[in-house]
Computed example of a mutant assay.
Amino acid sequence: MSYKRFPTPIRVIIKQGRENIIATAWDAVEFLRRWPGKRGIAYRRALQHCLDALDGILSPKRAWASFTAAAKEEGFLA
């Protein structure tokens, strides 16, 4: 399985002050599985798009955009 690199890494900071660098669709899936925020539409879309990127159905750029939108909605972007 390819990890599908994102166009640029995303730095997310959760409330406990922990910082994560998300550089691939696989990193995003791992982070989304332990997502500390609300699991609404943006979260579900990001998870599906990242899984689809790993399967080669969507581009890593599309998954990156969805993950970024979900992280922004929850205030996780640094």
Rank of each mutant, 00 (worst) to 15 (best):
M1N: 04
Y3F: 10
K4V: 05
K4N: 07
F6D: 08
P7H: 01
P7W: 08
T8R: 08
R11D: 01
V12G: 07
I14L: 01
I14E: 11
I14Y: 07
R18E: 13
R18S: 11
N20K: 05
I21K: 06
I21A: 02
I21F: 04
I21W: 06
I22Y: 02
A23C: 05
T24K: 06
W26T: 07
A28K: 08
A28W: 09
V29Q: 05
V29L: 09
V29C: 12
V29Y: 05
E30F: 03
F31H: 02
F31P: 03
R33P: 03
R33Q: 13
R33Y: 10
R34C: 08
R34M: 07
P36Q: 04
G37R: 07
G37Q: 07
G37C: 10
G37L: 07
R39K: 15
R39W: 03
G40Y: 08
G40W: 06
I41A: 14
Y43T: 13
R44W: 11
R45T: 15
R45G: 10
L47I: 09
C50A: 15
C50Q: 02
L51R: 14
L51K: 13
A53N: 12
D55H: 02
G56A: 10
G56K: 05
G56M: 12
G56Y: 13
I57V: 15
I57S: 07
I57E: 14
L58P: 03
L58D: 14
L58E: 14
S59G: 11
S59T: 15
S59H: 12
R62I: 14
A63K: 04
S66K: 04
S66Y: 07
S66G: 05
F67V: 05
F67E: 05
T68D: 04
A70Q: 02
A70W: 09
A71W: 07
K72P: 00
K72T: 08
E73P: 02
E74K: 03
G75A: 10
G75K: 01
F76H: 03
L77M: 02
L77K: 01
